[in-house]
C-alpha cells in the first residue's frame, strides 16, 4: 500500500513541489536523488488520480434547535 494514498490533493501537490525543488538544488547524493525522484513520480500519479476521481460535494447550512450552525448534504437533482 502506497503511503501517499492518504494524502489530500493539496498535501500531495505540496510534497511534489518539494521533491522537484530538492532535485533542482542539485547537491543530493545519488541515493537521495533517486528517493526524491521516485517519491515525486508517485505523488504526481496520486495527484492525477485524485483529480480524476474527485466528485463535487454540496452541502447546505442550517441552524440547529440549540442554535449551532451545521451543514448537511444537499441533493439538488
Amino acid at each position: 500500500m502506497d503511503a501517499f494514498t492518504a494524502f489530500s490533493y493539496e498535501e500531495a501537490f505540496e510534497k511534489l513541489e518539494q521533491a522537484v525543488s530538492a532535485l533542482q538544488d542539485g547537491r543530493l547524493d545519488l541515493e537521495q536523488a533517486l528517493k526524491h525522484y521516485e517519491e515525486g513520480m508517485r505523488l504526481a500519479r496520486h495527484c492525477h488520480h485524485l483529480l480524476q476521481q474527485a466528485e463535487l460535494r454540496v452541502q447546505q447550512l442550517h441552524i440547529t434547535d440549540d442554535g449551532n450552525v451545521e451543514s448537511e448534504p444537499l441533493d439538488l437533482a
Binding site: 483529480l51 474527485a54 466528485e55 463535487l56 454540496v58 452541502q59 447550512l61
Partner: peptide, 9 residues
C-alpha cells in the same frame, strides 16, 4: 471537483 460547496440559502 476536489472542492466542497457549502450553501447558505
Amino acid at each position: 471537483p476536489l472542492t466542497q460547496v457549502v450553501i447558505a440559502p
